[in-house]
Design a protein around this nucleic acid. Structure first.
Length: 597
RNA sequence: GGCCCCGUGGUGUAGCGGCCUAACAUGCCACCCUGUCACGGUGGAGAUCGCGGGUUCAAAUCCCGCCGGGGUCGCCA
């Protein structure tokens, strides 16, 4: 090693030691006669003093140092003179008196600040990601991610799980997300696919008798990116044999509770994690991944306004739509402009419009509300009794603003759900120091595809139906519930899993329901069906987005902040400039010719 | 593919029809400075305001198109 200690570890007890340090110049303070530099390595920062009376040659070299130069310094750890201690640095009681310094490598002036927390254009950060990662916040994120994964591995190891690697080059299946394809040189015209998840392989590991498997698995999906979605991402993938739902849900509740307690003490986590039915979540929060850090629940007002003079409400209910609302606390004072914006949001979300009812400026009891205090474009069509009943249903008081949407049942929920989340964010209702975990259960097994009218899996085709619903597969597929569970936190879906089908017969039945011919079933899934005929144990599992949970724990806005080398929105790696063209020779080896577009 | 937001010295911002020969902070360069720690002081260099077109007597500023970036809907078994 070029160094005897790391910069950040030095303390009082090292006083008197002669140490060799190596790192980067974080900052230089040149007093002419006396020069200080803050020397930075992975573990922290320590001040080095260059005194010409102690070492003239070192002082001379120090004059040439600039930010981000890489240097090696030999010097003595000394107590700082009284009154010059720096309590903001862990090493602030001591400093290094330089005896020798050598420049291991100079540095160009960086394109952005390393030693200051300012927002920098993200493209520039990604181009120079190796510099971005030197910055304290990114360094802390990457370190936190390491600790998270290490905790998970230790926890699962102690619980009897074994980590197994599964292949990255696997078989393409057209269902699900778009695959990343890898052409085969040896088999002209044939392709591998990168795994969207190790789903089938982990089930086969259960057939293999591993009983408890996990993997920190890289997954690939060729779909558009989002703040919480990347073309490649990392899952904690897990599968167990001889279990029911309870085993997985309890295991993960314990895992995540202890993870947060260990790595983020002080974070509020509620136990047990609530379990909410899918239909219930949609009715109350308008989302299957509700942010439960605040209430603002959606209430059904249809009965109150079914006979109203307000024709939009009355007609919607008569046409088997619903009228529902939420209460924005303390927002009765909203200006015309703010209300217009909410209305526009509601329209962007797919509603015809939004009815707002402001319940007076003052605070007080709902009983005191008079028509004169109400501000609403619908006021002249509504009675004070109707308004009071709606407000009461929404647990609103004077000074609150009611947001009401009339639309088809599913649409009304999703529109209000998104308004709820938007208002929750704007009003700061969500506790930033809380991680509000919950399980969503009772998903339908199947869903009608809008375009084709074909049944598709809500989760994936290996999800087992609830045993009592199996007969409905023949009569009413829409009513079949899957043994599927999602794990949500603060408005994000952070994981999902299910108990699996483990008999060939039931699996075939589901494939047929999904519209596959027997030939297609054999071609695509024959290996699974055959495996199930060799004593497959009952099994189930879960997969959890590592990027998202780390993002939530460090309070980042995007998962790019917790990935060392993420892709941008256009799925490009700006550090290495990928993707990029390849040579004609490479294409030729792969038996590929490019199409004219 | 749709919608929304953003492009001004290296970096981050201000300016939103004439006062712009583009301001501020920081960074950079030079000199001065022996107890600073976002050190301080003096001086200096650095931007045809993303690109193209249009409106106007006059455009960083208004309009249109394009390019780049971000958010989101679709998409994500």
């Amino acid at each position: 090693m070029l160094k005897s200690h790391s910069c950040g570890e030095l303390r009082d007890e090292h006083i008197g030691d002669v140490v060799t340090l190596a790192g980067w110049v974080d900052r230089r303070r040149d007093h002419g006669g006396l020069i200080f530099i803050d020397l930075r390595d992975r573990e922290g920062i320590v001040q080095v003093a260059f005194d010409p009376e102690k070492s003239a040659s070192s002082h001379e070299v120090a004059g040439d140092l600039r930010n981000e130069y890489v240097v090696k310094i030999i010097g003595e750890v000394v107590r700082r003179p009284s009154g010059t201690e720096n309590s903001r640095l862990p090493t602030g009681q001591i400093e290094i008196t330089a005896r020798e310094v050598s420049i291991l490598n100079p540095s160009k002036t960086p394109p952005f600040y390393i030693n200051e927390e300012t927002d920098v254009d993200e493209s520039l950060r990604l181009k120079y990601r190796y510099l971005d990662l030197r910055r304290p916040r990114m360094k802390a994120n990457i370190l936190f991610r390491h600790k998270t994964v290490k905790f998970i591995r230790d926890f699962l190891d102690a619980a009897g799980f074994i980590e197994v690697e599964t292949p990255i080059l696997i078989k393409s299946t057209p269902e699900g997300a778009r695959d990343y394809l890898v052409p085969s040189r040896i088999h002209p015209g044939e392709f591998y696919a990168l795994p969207q998840s190790p789903q089938q392989l982990k089930q086969l590991l259960m057939v293999a008798g591993l009983e408890k498997y996990y993997q920190i698995a890289r997954c690939f999906r060729d779909e558009d990116t989002r703040a919480d979605r990347q073309p490649e991402f990392t899952q904690l993938d897990l599968e167990m044999s001889f279990i029911d739902e309870e085993d997985i849900l309890v295991l993960f509740e314990e895992l995540f509770t202890s993870l947060v307690e260990t790595l983020k003490p002080g974070t509020r986590v509620k136990r047990p994690f609530p379990r909410i039915g899918y239909a219930d979540a949609m009715d109350r929060y308008g989302s299957d991944k509700p942010d439960l850090r605040f209430g603002m629940e959606i209430k059904d007002l249809s009965d109150i306004v079914a006979q109203s003079d307000f024709s939009i409400f009355r007609n919607t209910v008569a046409d088997s739509g619903r009228v529902k609302g939420i209460c924005a606390p303390g927002c009765a004072h909203y200006s015309r402009r703010q209300l217009d914006e909410l209305n526009r949001l509601a329209q962007d979300f797919g509603a015809g419009g939004l009815v707002t009812i402001a319940l007076g400026d003052s605070t007080g009891k709902l009983d005191d509300l008079t028509m004169a205090m109400v501000k609403s474009t619908a006021a002249k069509y509504l009675t004070i009794d109707e308004i009071k009943r709606m407000a009461s249903s929404l647990q609103a008081g004077l000074g609150d603003l009611l947001l009401i949407v009339a639309a088809a049942p599913d649409l009304v929920n999703t529109v209000l759900g998104r308004l709820r989340q938007e208002l929750g964010n704007r009003l700061g209702l969500a506790d930033p120091d809380a991680l509000s975990f919950a399980y969503i259960v009772g998903f339908p097994l199947l869903r009608k595809d809008n375009a084709s009218g074909q049944w598709t899996s809500e989760h994936h085709p290996f999800t087992a139906p609830w045993p009592e619903d199996i007969p409905l597969l023949d009569t009413a597929p829409a009513k079949v519930r899957g043994r599927h569970y999602d794990m949500v936190c603060n408005g994000y879906e952070i994981g999902g899993g299910s108990l699996r089908i483990y008999t060939s017969e039931l699996q075939k039945k589901v494939f047929r329901l999904l519209g596959y011919t027997d030939e297609e079933i054999t071609e695509r899934f024959g290996h699974m069906l055959e495996a199930f005929e060799f004593g497959a144990p009952p099994h189930g599992g879960i997969a959890l987005g590592i990027d998202r949970i780390v993002m939530l724990m460090v309070g980042a806005e995007t998962i790019r902040e917790v990935i060392a080398f993420p892709k941008n929105q256009a799925a490009m790696d700006l550090t290495m400039n990928a993707p990029s063209p390849v040579t004609e020779e490479q294409l030729s080896d792969l038996h590929i010719s490019l199409r004219e577009e």
